[in-house]
């Protein structure tokens, strides 16, 4: 569904994306992980066309993204920090998006609005909302138009456990509809049971991109989240650390 070919992006001194190529398909739930400023958000924003890569190509549904914005019809996006017009009320925000998207009321997916209880605060202006409520609004917008691709940037950060659980259920539900779901996170633990693939990024480079079975096979009963958290903590920065680790494990079959 999404094909990324050799994209690079440089912000002044920082090489945010360094020659990344990947292919994401229907039915996959991809966890895009890596430490802060490893290029996860840049990659996502590149797919959305909000950031223009210096080189490389991105195809969504075999359509090269440049200019024509219609491919974004298929994408629901939940940003890391949802920023909305201050003066607008929640209800107006939803109404406006529906208005400009011009989609049939029946095709809309309002389940998250209901589950998060957003109707009750439809009259609140956006500027008065807490970070968590904003996240709820962002999530509800991402799922509203029933898109075939969902891009969720740090979806559970800032959500209370109850809301996080609702969102997780929702993602699971969508996964069953054979959609492509792209989730970024720097921790995996809360979502790793949904994940089908893991893409690990560091300093703008893609370190590995493997499906979870392969990973589990290679790492045994390894709790992936823990391992990756350790990478991020900086115990090892060698590129082939995971390879070595897997190799070592294969040899003595001892859990880490």
């Amino acid at each position: 569904m999404i094909r990324i070919e050799h994209i690079s992006k440089r912000f002044k001194k920082l090489q945010a994306l360094n020659n990344i190529s990947a292919r994401f398909d229907r039915g996959q739930v991809i966890s895009l992980i890596g430490p802060n400023s490893s290029g996860k958000t840049t990659l996502i924003k590149s797919i959305l066309g909000m950031i223009k890569p210096n080189s490389g190509k991105i195809f969504v549904e075999e359509q090269l993204i440049d200019g024509d914005p219609s491919y974004r019809r298929d994408i629901g996006y939940m940003p890391q920090i949802g920023r909305y017009p201050d003066n607008m009320k929640i209800g107006q925000l939803f109404k406006m998006l529906q208005h400009i998207r011009n989609m049939d009321e029946s095709k809309l997916d309002k389940s998250l609005i209901h589950q998060f209880g957003l109707e009750k605060i439809f009259e609140k202006p956006m500027r008065t909302l807490s970070g968590g409520t904003r996240q709820k609004v962002s999530a509800a917008i991402a799922f509203l138009f029933n898109p075939s691709i969902l891009i969720l940037d740090e979806p559970t950060a800032g959500l209370d456990p109850l809301a996080a659980e609702i969102l997780k259920e929702k993602i699971l539900e969508e996964k069953k509809k054979n959609k492509l779901i792209l989730i970024t996170s720097h921790i995996l633990s809360d979502l790793d049971d949904l994940t089908t693939h893991v893409m690990y990024m560091q300093e703008g480079k893609m370190q590995f991109f493997k499906d979870i079975e392969t990973l589990q096979e290679e790492t045994g009963e390894l709790r992936l989240g823990k391992a990756i958290a350790r990478i991020m903590k900086g115990e090892q920065f060698s590129n082939d650390w995971i390879g070595k680790m897997i190799q070592a494990k294969k040899n003595d079959k001892k859990p880490l």
Binding site: L48, M50, P69, S70, R72, I75, Y77, L97, I100, R101
Partner: peptide
Amino acid sequence: EFIELMSSQPMS
């Protein structure tokens, strides 16, 4: 923010 929001929508 509005511009950002709109640019994630199918809108040129």
